[in-house]
Design a protein around this nucleic acid. Structure first.
Length: 554
RNA sequence: UGGGGCGUCGCCAAGCGGUAAGGCACUGGAUUUUGAUUCCAGCAUUCCCAGGUUCGAUCCCUGGCGCCCCAGCCA
């Protein structure tokens, strides 16, 4: 616990809860995160569970993890394990409260029977098409099903037969008897139970009827004693139904509160689309580093703490909001700037020969792991007469504001000497292949004695001691701010979202562990890929670039 | 043309009748062996519009305008 006052930017949900606690309407805070195990979690889910778990932490309550597994044809254990891992990765703990909607199937069935007996539910035998036609439209009332007034006995018998597997999928359905003319479509006799002869990932073949979301969610909340059932805006219209079931069943009533889901620019968030990206091989999998999934971001090198910061930073509201991807990237930089060790790597090498440095000499220079955190120690950086620097750091005819290397110019080699470019060697095509330089050997760890200023600092590696490694440069997956607005979002995929290349790196970058993230000084943050790296042969994923005001000036 | 929501700085977002928080972005300037980081300063006389109530309104009322969601036996 920090003694500092946390800024705790408030939001409308926090306000509601504080007032309820103060007025005595509620005496504790129990929330829940209810994912359907039919896909991997993405950053939008992170916003949701950070909110739910965060509220529980703030008010000394608890947050349950409950899988909304009411539709067996879409759900799978693979997803429940992945989801648990993702929530844990972000640092949240549901403790003993791991639940499944399917844990409540027996109780739900009893409640359905109870509603039938009360004349509040009936078995409809219309086809799905007929039901759709009779539901009416947004502006026209629906009409009652011809089966709406079946006797309670018939309904009981039919529902029993549905449960016993005596009917084919789609032949009958249990509906709540509410109001076919309601202006709220959700109240026009919504479906409660459908027939599905499908095995369930947890209950196996025990059931061939499964409850709908609307008939399961509120009751699940109620059973668990959830006080605040926080969901996204599209469920606002479901709230009257959520409350109707709780009231008719006369059970504990949680309060549903809706907030706006996250929209992130240059990405898509719908599970259907993410699944298509995976299935159609536009990406390498759910954990492709370009995916907005948590597994993708983890592999990309995004720290869990950065994602939590992001979720706090964007706030919670009820207006449809669009957050720019750069906000997330800035959170990642913030975090990595603190934690990542610094290293030197040259992505686009051009050779430099230091004429006044002995060819057979190799110095082991000390370079800090983190300049702002000397306690993190140093590593050895070999220096010889042949080096590589980045091609971008040399210009033959530089503009006045360019303070890197150029003919006759001086530049500081980071953590080493100041050198001066005396000659430029090109090949037949006119491409620069080598720079002949001289070093000021009296500038190691100090500025020139004569007081001359050398503004430019560039990174480098010793040619003989450098190793070539694989590097993947990632960029935004889509090149349109809102891919959903494209004729086809697939066409909006950025063809340059992943560029495979290599880099010449210092020795300190070879014996590294999967998932470790470094700052390649002056370039960006790079994370050791967890799948494709091999001992002694790491593959680096570019997590995010460093801010580059020079690039902006150009 | 039905119902449910939302409109406060470029992007988020506090505020709930007493005279516009904060973050990000942006712009200056300082420090810096990363054109990074850090630091300091600036950045809405105004809250979608128009009326009204009030000593006083972003907050209340009326009427407009704009945007989002709903017609799955998905969640």
């Amino acid at each position: 616990m920090s003694t500092e006052e946390r800024p705790a930017s408030s939001n409308f949900i926090r306000t509601i809860i504080s007032e309820d606690l103060e007025s005595g309407k509620r005496d504790q805070v129990i929330t829940r995160f209810p994912p359907e195990p039919n896909g991997y979690l993405h950053i939008g889910h992170a916003k949701s569970f950070s909110l739910n778990f965060g509220l529980a932490e703030d008010f000394n309550g608890r947050c349950h993890l409950r899988f909304d597994d009411t539709n067996p044809i879409k759900e799978d254990d693979e997803y429940v394990e992945a989801i648990k891992a993702d929530v844990s990765w972000l640092g949240f703990d549901w403790g003993e409260h791991l639940h499944f909607a399917s844990d409540y199937f027996d109780q739900l069935y009893l409640w359905a029977v109870q509603l039938i007996k009360a004349g509040k539910a009936y078995v409809d035998s219309q086809s799905a098409d007929e039901m759709r036609e009779n539901r009416g439209t947004l502006t026209a009332a629906g009409i009652d099903s011809p089966f709406r007034n079946r006797s309670i006995e018939d309904n009981l018998a039919l529902f029993e037969q549905m449960k016993n597997g005596e009917f084919a999928d789609g032949s009958h359905i249990l509906r709540a008897k509410i109001d076919m003319s309601s202006p709220n479509m959700n109240l026009r006799d919504p479906a409660m139970y459908r027939i599905m002869h499908t095995d369930h990932h947890r209950t196996g073949d025990k059931w061939c009827i499964y409850p709908m979301y609307d008939f399961a969610h509120g009751q699940g909340d109620s059973i668990e004693g959830v006080t605040y059932s926080i969901c996204t805006l599209e469920f606002e219209d479901h709230r009257p139904l959520y409350e109707w079931f709780l009231q008719e069943l006369d059970i504990f009533a949680p309060q549903q509160i809706e907030f706006a889901r996250l929209n992130l620019s240059y990405t898509v968030m719908s599970k259907r689309k993410l699944l298509q990206l995976v299935n159609d091989k536009h990406v390498s999998g759910w954990d492709d580093p370009r995916m907005p999934t948590l597994v993708g971001m983890r592999r990309r090198g995004y720290p869990a703490a950065a994602i939590r910061t992001f979720c706090e930073r964007i706030g919670v509201g009820k207006g449809a909001s669009w957050i720019d991807l750069s906000v997330l990237e800035e959170c990642v930089r913030d975090r990595l700037n603190e934690s990542a060790f610094r290293r030197q790597a040259v992505l686009n090498p051009v050779k430099v020969t230091i004429t006044n440095y002995p060819a057979d000499k190799v110095e082991e220079l000390d370079a800090p792991n983190h300049p702002q955190q000397p306690e993190q120690g140093t590593r050895k950086l070999p220096f010889g007469n042949e080096l590589y620097i980045d091609r971008d750091d040399f210009m033959e005819d530089p503009p006045k504001k360019f303070f890197r290397l150029g003919p006759g110019r001086e530049v500081r080699l980071r953590n080493a000497y100041i050198i001066k470019c005396n000659e430029v060697i090109k090949d037949e095509t006119g491409e620069v292949v080598e720079l002949i330089c001289s070093a000021d050997l009296d500038t190691l760890g100090k500025n020139p004695a004569d007081g001359r200023k050398v503004k430019g600092i560039i990174h480098w590696v010793a040619a003989q001691q450098a190793t070539e490694v694989s590097v993947r440069l990632y960029d935004r997956l889509f090149n349109q701010e809102n891919p959903d607005k494209a004729e086809n979002y697939i066409d909006a995929i950025n063809p340059e979202s992943c560029t495979e290349t290599t880099a010449m790196v210092e020795p300190g970058l070879i014996d590294v562990a999967a998932g470790e993230t470094f700052q390649f000084e002056r370039v960006g943050y790079f994370s050791v890929d967890s799948k494709d790296s091999k001992p002694g042969a790491p593959v680096f994923n570019r997590t995010v670039t460093l801010r580059d005001t020079w690039a902006k000036m150009k």
